[in-house]
Design a protein around this nucleic acid. Structure first.
Lengths: 214, 214
DNA sequence: GCTCAGTTTAAACAGATGTTTAAATTAACG
DNA sequence: CGTTAATTTAAACATCTGTTTAAACTGAGC
């Protein structure tokens, strides 16, 4: 295993649990069993390391997502919203083959990217991988043509929040489910629960136009 | 204005934007125009300051929320889910009277509490203000009796994620709405958009039982 | 005016942070 | 083998972190 990959693996696990700000380079290099200076040698800076961790996942995920969503868009049949959201399941779960805890790690990192570091990661993702977003919007539009672009924008954002927040507190959730309901949950159990919720949310009756303020 | 309140005001604004980990005591005391040591003198530690910032809001919010939810629970009529969620609107918006940007700040801080600092704030809130949560669950149960406690637990968590995430990226959202749709949004516009979404999500058809894993 | 608790202040503390340096080691290639 | 480039290493860098110290100041109450 190359030094570069050892760093990426360790950084990913730590970032997912403790956030970007909350993880030091010394923790990363110590867990990766490489020298401290290796991060700056191979990646240039901590910020670039963060981007590299995210890119590694996005490069695996985004082509698979594009294919799955394209299939829905190209099909002449009108999809249900459940089908649109279910298109995410296989590509996301596939990340577990790519790396141990891959699905959970990636979704947690996505959430971190929105709240940590003043959103520079959000900028990075939306500018680097716009195709995924536009395909997704198109699929939604096809499943629910009455939605205006504004409605889609808002509801996708709400959906993003649901997913990302759920996964960010994934560990806590699993604990609570275990203690309060004596149920053992894994990641696909969570996904099974969340899809009806977000599908119903996106399918909600159309709201009146934006309430414009002065 | 007392030193204590100057610190609380500055800390709140900075915490909301940059997170707890991302804000230093020197930034806070500098913006508050007080001496660095004042934080440790008045609050003991940074951790206690974080709790104090949250408590100040919760002490304003929680009695108002309890009243609004109790009214729904005590009413003999069965409420709609829209009514249950709408019970949050006035208490939340009232925080804007309490302090400039109060509503947005509070919701952002709530989100930070879930993701920053490994959830010690989540523990703090759920143990200190359990009445709000139990009232809320009871109101939901009344509006939608078919939901099992597990379903309610999950859907409330998803709802929490939607709200918190939306408010965390509130500033970015307002920008996007302005640039892409030429619409001016304020916080109550966002609330108006989100309530149908979360109400529909919670009202989604009941899912099969938890998929228990070994 | 004196006393004394409450508060503010500047300075220092020890430890952690990301990054850089220069020497040592390893690998690649003719 | 010899040379050159790529990589690893230990050490130091300057800066920032939360916290503590001890002295200075403030304002009542006697």
């Amino acid at each position: 295993m190359s030094t570069k990959n050892k760093i990426l693996d360790a950084a990913e696990d730590l970032f997912a649990v403790k956030g970007f700000n909350g993880t030091s380079l010394r923790e990363i290099t110590s867990q990766a069993e490489v020298n401290l200076a290796a991060v700056n040698y191979h990646f240039g800076s901590k910020k670039e390391l963060i981007k590299a961790v995210m890119s590694r996942y996005m490069n695996e995920l985004s082509p698979r997502l594009e294919v799955a969503l394209q299939k829905i868009v190209d099909d002449e049949r009108q999809p249900t919203l459940i089908e649109v959201f279910s298109a995410f399941v296989d590509p996301l779960l596939w990340l577990n083959e790519f790396k141990h805890n891959g699905t959970s790690n990636f979704l947690q990192l996505l959430g971190r990217g929105y709240t940590d570091s003043q959103g520079f990661l959000r900028w990075f993702l939306t500018t680097q991988y716009p195709k995924v977003i536009s395909n997704f919007v198109e699929a939604i539009r096809k499943a629910y043509p009455e939605l205006t672009p504004e409605d889609i924008f808002w509801r996708l954002h709400f959906t993003m929040g649901t997913i990302v927040f759920t996964m960010s507190s994934n560990d806590a959730l699993i604990d609570i489910a275990q203690n309060d309901f004596n149920k053992t949950i894994d990641i696909s159990g969570v996904i099974e629960q969340v899809i009806p919720y977000i599908a119903a949310g996106v399918a909600a009756p159309i709201t009146p136009a934006f309430s414009a303020s002065s």
